[in-house]
Amino acid sequence: MYDKSRLKLKNPWIAAVLAFLVPGAGHFYQRRMFKAGIYSVCILGTFFGGMALGDWQTCYYRKDAKHTHYGYISQFMVGIPALPALVQAKRYRENVVLDAIPLQNESLSGIEFEGIYRSQGQAMTEGVPIRGSLNGQVARVDTESFGAELHNAEFIGIRTDNGEEFGLTLEGPPQIGHPISPSPDRMFSCQVVNKEGLPVGYVDGSIPRNFWNWYQMPLQESNLEHLHGTLGKRFDLALVFTWIAGLLNVLAIWDALEGPAYGIGDEPEPEPDSEKD
């Protein structure tokens, strides 16, 4: 045991709480700047590195009959960066699980859309890739059903395969993803009509979801399948990064509370075991 009186830990409990909330903050409070730098850069770097590797969907809290994400126990130890997951799990439960009516009146004006336009009769593998912005309104038909309709809706943009300008008039009941969901892409598809109002095809793609409506939302089976399908083992590695970041912060919290485990670092090296000879 080394002489701990050589360390100035100020109020160790305040330091430990700060170290939990923001990795490195406890050591910054104790004026142990070098360690504050190591902890904040390494732990936050590992956590956000893992988030970036997993398309920013690796940190989430979920506990229900089908699935419990035990990894969140470790992610939680990173502190503030992982705490939104608790709020998002509550929002998801209140808005999606308990309230099954997904559609609200909302404006599509200026919302970016990316997807495929298919004329009638075209197969799923065919179609024109398009990107641009939408205009118009999605209106819920009545509050008792899932029905909705589009008002004055149009698409203005380009064909992404050749850059040609492209415009479409949209009509009919749209299929639109719930505003709150773990994925940053919100599904959107609807019918396309000509000037006489006759159906000529449909668009199928996605619009962006508001950041706070997807970030750290609890991943569902379909989201997990999609992430494993698109990212493969990179998603597993991303999860491991965020778990390790949390475990590393436990070491940092303990260091803020109790000081380093072995010593200051200027103690003499222990004598080699004489019995070996």
């Binding site: 390494c42 590695l237 070491l251 303990w254 010593g263 670092g265």
Partner: peptide, 28 residues
């Protein structure tokens, strides 16, 4: 290749673990 991501991860673990063992910069 995902294997290369283990290099910064190992560096991060080494630094944090060593920092939690000792106080002096050179020793860490």
């Amino acid at each position: 290749e995902t294997t290369w991501y283990l290099v910064p991860l190992a560096a991060s673990i080494s630094l944090v673990y060593s920092a939690s063992r000792y106080e002096l910069r050179d020793r860490i």
